[in-house]
Amino acid sequence: MDVPWKKPGAKLPVLEGDKNMSKQTINFMLNSQKVSAQVESDSRLVDFLHEMGLTGTKLGCGEGDCGACTVIIDGQTANSCLVLAPQIDGKEVTTIEGLGSYEQLHPLQEAFIEEGAVQCGFCTPGMLLSAKALLDENSNPKREEIIRSISGNLCRCTGYTKIANAIEKVVRSKS
């Protein structure tokens, strides 16, 4: 019988106590603060962030297809489900928790609320970070560039139009 968990070559999950488990220390900047942490060599960045209590980064697929777990690493967006925690050693990471606060929203956050770009909200943190990475690099993008910048972030609720509108609103208010 074809039982998937017994297929030849099927990878069994690694357990605590297994020989190949190792920990290492990493130092990095997280939302403008210095962090030093012990991480397991095969721990995904998204899980590591959640362990640190930063649950704003969402896990939608675990395969790099949906973009819900988007973070910014050294200015570039990345799917944190495909990045291993040790890989951020020496780097600068921005998550949704670093974008704004109740007291001071980032203009993108303000615009997402005003333009109706938020529905279920599960794609929202990743969308915001993709938009931020775009605007950090190009303060005056065209509509097509805005749309391309969020093409790796799936949204099932809004149909994207109001998200693009929100980003465009921030661009217009700056220029």
Binding site: T55, L59, L99, G100, S101, L105, I113, G116, V118, F122
Partner: peptide, 21 residues
Amino acid sequence: KSVRRKDALDKVLGKSQYSGD
């Protein structure tokens, strides 16, 4: 009137605690 969504603030800040969080 197109008032602001009740949950929008928590959602844009990444503060909403979905079940998996």
